[in-house]
Amino acid sequence: MSVAFAHPVTVWIVSATVAVVAGAAAAIGWLSATGRVRPDLRRELWLRLGSWCVLLPLMLGPVLAGREWTIAAVTVLALACYREYARATGLFRDRVLSAAVVVAILAMNFAALDNWYGFFVALWPLSVCLLAVASIPLDRPQGYIQRVGLAVFGTMLFGAGLAHLGYMANDPGYRPLVLLLLTAVALNDVAAFTCGKLIGGPKLLPATSPNKTISGSLGAVVVTASVVALIGAALFAGTPMGQWHWLVVFGVLVSVAGQLGDLMLSSIKRDIGIKDMGAVLPGHGGILDRFNSLLLVAPAVFHLVHYLVGIGEGQPVRLITGGG
């Protein structure tokens, strides 16, 4: 327990998260008791809060529990995200390719667990090679480009993209950074929604996501970047990332990559013609509808921090395969 909460930023984030949930429950309770919201909206609010009460321990718990738990949770998340994506696009019917994607996702997360960066990086082109040849023996060239394209896209997003989040756990001080990313993308969504409602104005990309406004998007950048940069100042003090301009880049990157991940999923859904990717999380839709922002944030932040500070520098490598 003392290790999990060793960094003050970890304590701040967990405390703030618990306080926000308690505050939201109190607010919804007050709105319900005073009859200020319609019954359907009240039900929707309680459903969303209930989902968060289940999700948050599942998100924060493994990160606090340790490296292996974090990577295991990211692996489960990646497989769940791929499942929804495959069912939405129809790729799940192509079982050979789907199995190849699952193998690639497992291999990338294994590389993270092994702390073998060379293999982790090599798996991106190697996965593409595997996916390109996996369905050839079926002798069914019709639709080859579409299905391999979908498989590569899915592998890169849910395998390579999310595995960066797990790989961060190879750094002894990963907890506050991973917790910051998990909570910052949620803050980003809330800030965009709130600023958009309060300020209004022209739509951002109406054909892609009809409810998003330019004011909401810019407001989210200001709010999220400020919060992330402030917490980042405590997190990266004494490192090259601690300089104010890099902290601003860090904050803006989290907000912009988070919003782009959201818009990317909206593009996928509009193209297919569906509203939600699933119905697993009451009030949210599918798992991807909740975690879309992380898909681009994880690799973007990983490589910024890796470039400027390093991740897991000096830690034992190839923990499982040996030879490090």
Binding site: R87, G90, F92, Q146, I274, D276, G278
Partner: peptide, 16 residues
């Protein structure tokens, strides 16, 4: 080309 984006027929149904 016979491949097209076709979601699962049961997409959007709650697990039960």
């Amino acid at each position: 080309m016979d491949w097209k984006l076709r979601p699962a027929r049961d997409l959007g149904l709650a697990p039960g």
